[in-house]
Simulated assay, not measured.
Amino acid sequence: MAVTDKPCKHFVLVHGAWSWFKVATRLRTGGYRVTAPDLAASGVDPRPLREVPTFRDYTGPLLALLGSLPPGEKVVLVGHSLGGVNVALATEMFPDKVAAAVFLCAFMPDHTSRPSNVLERFIEGNWLGNWLEYWMDTEIKPQDTEGKLPTSMLFGPKIIREKFVQLCSPEDVTLATSLMRVSSLFVEDLQLQQPYSEGRYGSVRKVYIVCKQDLAIAVGFQRWMIDNYPVEEVMEIDADHSVMLSRPDELVRCLVDIAESYA
């Protein structure tokens, strides 16, 4: 794929650094700078989930990255799935470091409700259909008897195959199932946080990329989030939830267009 050579433009891809290997390679080949940090207790980060009690702790590596950028440098910040909430928090804290926030079939908070609201709407609404059928073989359980730590979840191979990577190659399915780690939605902690502000998070330009065959975050819910919190631009890809694996070329084209328009 031909990608316009713009080496000064920097993409930060969140979350799950391993999952971006196809997209990162294509962007770097085109001359872009790409950083895909592992969040706390994710990927190669050695910490277990019990040592990451808050969503801010979980987002810590991304916040440290943005805080280390030199004055005047802005990035195109891309959040996938739960990574949309990480992007929202990072944008709230470093709005001057973000040229555009991209929500890729991702949870997108608004700036009038607590950041947990978008997750609660998804869980409590009719977007999932039958609750037990949706979660399939996901293990969801408390980490401690006192309830001080966020509920943990580990996606099993069945839900990964059928809802996350149904359009991916067998090799990518094997990769995804082998690298999955225990994580959390951090709903309990996000319920305690104040809404992100209009003057910071709300001031950054946003693009939403809808994945039209997503069975993990229903397309109807993606469109509800866009209606609830309008963005500058909406793009669509005919892809499953793991679009960076199943449709990397289409995703790169979208990201390059965003960089050319907003960075």
Rank of each mutant, 00 (worst) to 15 (best):
D240I: 11
Q193G: 10
H10F: 13
P48T: 10
W18S: 08
Y32N: 12
D137G: 04
R50S: 14
D238G: 11
V219R: 00
F221R: 06
R247K: 15
L132K: 15
F186T: 05
E146P: 12
R121I: 11
T35N: 11
Q213P: 10
Q222D: 07
Q194F: 12
I258N: 00
L89N: 01
R223F: 09
H15Y: 12
S246Q: 03
S183D: 04
F21P: 01
N130W: 10
D172E: 09
K206F: 15
C168Y: 00
F221E: 05
D214P: 08
C8V: 14
M235H: 14
A41Q: 10
I226F: 10
Y134F: 15
L62M: 07
L49R: 00
V23I: 08
Y196A: 06
C254R: 06
T112P: 12
A176E: 11
A99I: 02
G43N: 10
S81V: 14
P109G: 03
I209L: 15
W127R: 05
F94H: 03
L128T: 15
M93V: 15
L27A: 15
R161T: 02
D45P: 06
F164H: 07
M225A: 05
D57R: 09
F155M: 11
V76E: 01
I123G: 10
M153K: 14
D137Q: 05
E232R: 09
L128H: 05
L89Y: 02
P150N: 09
E92F: 03
A41T: 09
R247C: 05
Y262H: 01
P142F: 08
T91N: 06
Y229K: 05
E133D: 13
P61D: 15
E232C: 10
K158H: 08
E124Q: 13
D45I: 09
A24H: 05
D45S: 10
V234D: 00
V173E: 00
R28Q: 15
E250G: 06
S113C: 11
Q222Y: 04
M108L: 12
L255N: 01
G16N: 02
T91V: 10
S19E: 05
F21V: 13
G220V: 02
A99L: 04
G60Q: 12
A216P: 03
D189F: 03
A2W: 15
S152D: 05
L192M: 14
A106D: 02
